[in-house]
């Protein structure tokens, strides 16, 4: 008799005297709720992510400064980030018309934000990431199966995202081409994540509903941290110690 059959028989014997399968009360909040981007930023910053909010209407970037881990990475000085030049001007230089111009303006703003986070260096990028996001001076190392050593040696990684949750300040990566293999957002000490406003949902149930469980999923809420020393949250253990979120649209 196989162990599988032994265990299943044991369970059936254990339940033989009867076990109720109750109705699941679903009166907790589930449906779509209004997305409050300001609250998302607040929650991200609360868990020590640094948020760069691109606001085309204001023609600029509002850097929202979170903690980051002092002295632990090449961009530790980012707390001094200054407001950037107008996005519109840079976008207009790219020419084009209508939607193209908007897309190009968006790319220019992302480029400016990344330049501000990491003046120069090498970043790993997934194969589907728009290379136009990378500023001059930042070299994109496209992941086509890079070794762990090469990924770990990079100054950072730039990915897109799949979903974000306002209520918990969480970003989810689903290994789509613009997010890449799980390893690339893990080994570098700096993770720059570009998030679109239309990817943001209010609550955990909405995020679960949007995600495809057959893909490898990584839920990220702030940089690597631990509660193991006297039960206080301390940032900076094995994962990236610096998480920058560029919020577009």
């Amino acid at each position: 008799m196989s162990s599988k059959n032994i265990i299943l028989d044991r369970i059936r014997a254990a339940l033989a005297s009867g076990a109720e399968s109750p109705e699941i009360p679903r009166d907790y909040r589930r449906g779509p709720a209004e997305v409050d981007l300001d609250l998302l930023v607040e929650r991200l910053v609360d868990y020590k992510a640094v948020v760069h909010r691109l606001n085309p209407e204001k023609s600029g970037i509002e850097p929202v400064i979170g903690g980051g881990v002092e002295g632990s990475g090449p961009q530790a000085g980012v707390a001094d980030a200054r407001p950037l030049d107008g996005v519109e001007a840079e976008g207009a230089a790219g020419g084009g018309s209508g939607g193209e111009r908007a897309a190009s303006a968006g790319a220019a703003a992302v480029r400016a934000a990344i330049a501000d986070i990491l003046g120069a260096g090498t970043v790993v990028v997934p194969p589907g990431l728009p290379l136009e996001w990378l500023p001059d001076g930042v070299v994109g190392l496209v992941d086509d199966g890079l070794s762990a050593e090469r990924i770990a040696a990079a100054d950072g990684v730039v990915t897109a995202a799949a979903v974000a949750v306002v209520e918990t300040g969480t970003i989810v990566l689903d290994a789509s081409p613009d997010q890449g293999r799980r390893i690339i957002s893990l080994l570098p000490d700096l993770h720059i994540c570009v998030l679109r406003a239309d990817q943001v949902v209010a609550s955990v149930p909405e995020a679960v509903a949007r995600l495809d469980p057959t893909r490898p999923l990584t839920w990220i809420s702030g940089p690597s941290a631990t509660s193991d020393i006297e039960l206080n949250r301390v940032e900076g253990v094995h994962g990236p110690r610096n998480l920058h979120v560029i919020l577009t649209g």
Partner: peptide
């Protein structure tokens, strides 16, 4: 915490 730093699925 509102959410722990990392959840892998």
């Amino acid at each position: 915490e509102r959410m722990n730093p990392y959840t892998s699925m």
